[in-house]
């Protein structure tokens, strides 16, 4: 299994914890998925609201590793301060770094992302940058200390799958030794399987499972797809070709 910052992961399927119909469904979904890493966030809580405390109890009982995010941060300062608050709350150096550059597509701001990643790496964080598949951006992220890269498949929450197969394949070829996770945009298990077939190490998704009619069943489907794709990638797939090639031997066919 791939290793993220010295920790061997237990499943190639990573799941978000948002948008489930109920806490019980969330817990059931995680059990059926076999996911070993859950993404979480930090949000305001100052009044009598205890939602955060209840959520923390639920996540702790799942027995999974947590990967806090900096979702909805548009500036380096916001992202860095949020990361520090998350580190104290969740007691982990892991941070899924999001620095958003565009509201409609939630596309990462590549310039802010590199600056924030450099700052956080200096502060002792282990950064999982939510990035695009841009080779130059990914080079910069690795240069400032990122040892995992998480390119998007498609914009967050769209379910469109892998929008740029060529780019993702190039990234895999360019960084054979860096763990790569397709993060965001997956809608169906086949998308996850495809990412694995491209040689990716893991996938991270949320909406595709949480918004399915039966989240636990969909999570199980994703788990099977991820396992199938990874198995296929390791089995040296055949090369595609344009012209047909009969699989049944022609030699010995009766002359009729």
């Amino acid at each position: 299994m791939p290793t993220f910052y010295g920790t061997e992961i237990t499943s190639r399927l990573m799941l978000g914890t948002a948008q489930y119909p109920s806490p019980a469904t969330l817990a059931d979904t995680f059990r059926r998925s076999g996911a070993g890493i859950a993404t979480v966030s930090v949000r305001r809580e100052a009044g009598g609201d205890q939602a955060g405390q209840d959520f923390w109890t639920l996540i702790r009982d799942l027995g999974v590793a947590v990967l806090p995010n900096t979702a909805s941060c548009y500036s380096v300062r916001e992202a860095v301060t949020t990361a520090h608050m998350a580190r104290e709350l969740f007691d982990t150096n892991w941070i899924k770094l999001e620095v958003i550059g565009h509201a409609d597509t939630l596309q990462p701001d590549p310039f802010g992302l590199v600056e924030a990643a450099a700052q956080l790496a200096e502060d002792g964080f282990e950064v999982f940058p939510y990035c695009t598949e841009d080779l130059v951006l990914c080079e910069r992220l690795v240069e400032v200390g990122c040892k995992v890269l998480m390119p998007w498949g498609a914009p967050i929450g769209t379910g469109l799958g892998l929008n740029n197969i060529y780019g993702l394949r190039s990234l895999r070829a360019h960084f054979p030794d860096i763990p790569l996770v397709v993060d965001a945009g997956l809608g169906l298990p086949s998308h996850a399987s495809r990412a694995m077939e491209l040689g990716y190490d893991a996938v991270l998704l949320n909406t595709a499972v949480a918004k399915a009619g039966d989240p636990a069943a969909m999570a199980h489907a994703f788990a099977l797809a991820v396992e199938a794709g990874a198995l296929a990638a390791g089995a040296d797939p055949m090369d595609p070709r344009d012209m047909a090639a009969p699989s049944t031997p022609v030699f010995g066919k009766a002359m009729l």
């Binding site: 978000g16 914890t17 948002a18 948008q19 489930y20 969330l26 993404t39 979480v40 966030s41 930090v42 949000r43 305001r44 809580e45 100052a46 939602a51 955060g52 405390q53 959520f55 923390w56 996540i59 806090p68 995010n69 979702a71 608050m85 709350l89 969740f90 967050i156 965001a184 949320n206 909406t207």
Partner: peptide
């Protein structure tokens, strides 16, 4: 002042 707590995230 900002006061934040653990919350669901993707």
């Amino acid at each position: 002042v900002e006061v934040v707590a653990p919350r669901q995230g993707g």
